[in-house]
Amino acid sequence: MAKSNKPIVWGPFAAGGTVTAFVTPALILITLLAALGATPELLRYEHLLAFLRHGLAKAAAVALVFVSLWSAAHRLRITCYDLGVRADGMVATVVYAVALVGTLASAVFLLRL
């Protein structure tokens, strides 16, 4: 059988599509409240710091960032192709690199907390 890296690319896309569908609107609402001046308790410096110092919260945050960025990157790649951009190899390299660098950065910042 022909070897394909499609499942590796597509798996996190499907996971990310599902996770972002369930949690991203609520996350946006939480920071929107802060943007409107009604900052929720969790976003206060001490509270967020205490919350994200838990190992489980760190792991969940990195996983959330990874699947969100990866699924958005994959969708952006397909969208570029739909819009007539035929340099798929280059587009794929750029968008997946953004997803991986963003994930790595979030892990570094979380470990500094």
Partner: peptide
């Protein structure tokens, strides 16, 4: 529907920047 990915990517990067400021 497909363009929603730009906003999800942008928002997630905003959260990553928020983590940096927290650190």
């Amino acid at each position: 529907r497909e363009f929603s990915c730009l906003f999800i990517m942008g928002y997630t990067l905003l959260l990553v920047y928020g983590l940096k400021s927290l650190a």
